[in-house]
């Protein structure tokens, strides 16, 4: 059990009368992509926020590599190796693409308490940032202002910033959202390779991507995980078909 990279036990969170997380047990093993699917408003992002530390659960625990991090800040969890991407891009829009990536590298490896030396003259940080940009295909856009990027490029930058952290576990909230068919395919191929570096918790609506990538799938409906299994098990699960896949299968 202790070699689980990420685990939640009985995570529960209510917003007023709404139970957004209802005693959720979830785990992520080394080397796997574990997808979470579920209809809009099922509580996927809410679960991720509790894993990353942005929200405190009402009950239950979060473990990172066997350590209980439930009481730890977002910052501490990031430093412990959690690399998260946001459903709605959280980027410094006025800054350049490179500056956004350097921010990640700075948080992961540099000292922020340096006041006089230009950060872009720190070769180590810039190299690390550019490597990450290169991997998602954004290196050519490095001097562009983030506000000028297309929606798809912002999604790529989200992933690149997480890469600069060189995390032990990725937690990705709909990285393909709004990417288009070709963009999704590129991202799918990229994530496929990424799982050998660190396992991925993947929240995604794009079923082609999920079925192509996931080692396991969990289905979240109204805050409850109603099923967890392999692609084939989930595809053939009657309850899942009814609750979720039934809509488009």
């Amino acid at each position: 059990m202790t070699d689980l990279v990420l685990e939640t036990r009985g995570i529960t969170k209510s917003f007023g009368a709404l139970k957004a997380s209802d005693s959720i047990d979830f785990d992520l093993r080394p080397g796997e992509i574990h997808a979470i699917i579920g209809p809009n408003g099922a509580g996927k992002s809410t679960l991720i926020k509790q894993i990353s530390g942005e929200l405190r659960p009402d009950a239950g625990q979060v473990f990172l590599a066997g350590t209980d991090v439930t009481q730890q800040t977002t910052r501490a969890r990031a430093r412990a190796g959690l690399g998260r991407t946001f459903q709605i891009s959280e980027l410094a829009m006025e800054d350049t693409v490179l500056q956004n990536a350097v921010l990640g590298a700075l948080g992961a490896s540099g000292s922020v308490w340096r006041f006089l030396k230009p950060v872009l003259s720190d070769a180590e940080l810039v190299t690390r940032a550019e490597e990450a940009l290169d991997r998602v295909g954004l290196l050519d856009a490095r001097n562009q202002r983030t506000a000028e990027l297309s929606h798809g490029q912002r999604r790529q930058l989200e992933v690149a910033v997480a890469l600069t952290l060189r995390p032990k576990v990725f937690v990705m909230d709909e990285p393909m959202a709004g990417l288009g068919a070709e963009g999704s395919l590129t991202m799918t191929r990229f994530l496929d390779g990424l799982r050998s570096e660190a396992p991925i918790l993947l929240v995604e609506h794009d079923m082609d991507a999920v079925f192509a990538l996931a080692d396991r799938i969990s289905v979240l409906v109204y805050g409850r995980l109603i099923a967890t299994g392999t692609v084939d098990e989930i595809r053939s699960n009657a309850e899942v078909r009814e609750a979720y896949l039934g809509e488009d299968a």
Binding site: T74, D95, N100, G104, L106, V112, V119
Partner: peptide, 19 residues
């Protein structure tokens, strides 16, 4: 300066990179 700039524009991102 870079980190402060980010803290102004996107505090959540700043935290998730460990700052």
């Amino acid at each position: 300066g870079l980190a402060l700039n980010a803290a102004r524009q996107t505090p959540m991102r700043t935290q998730t990179v460990g700052l």
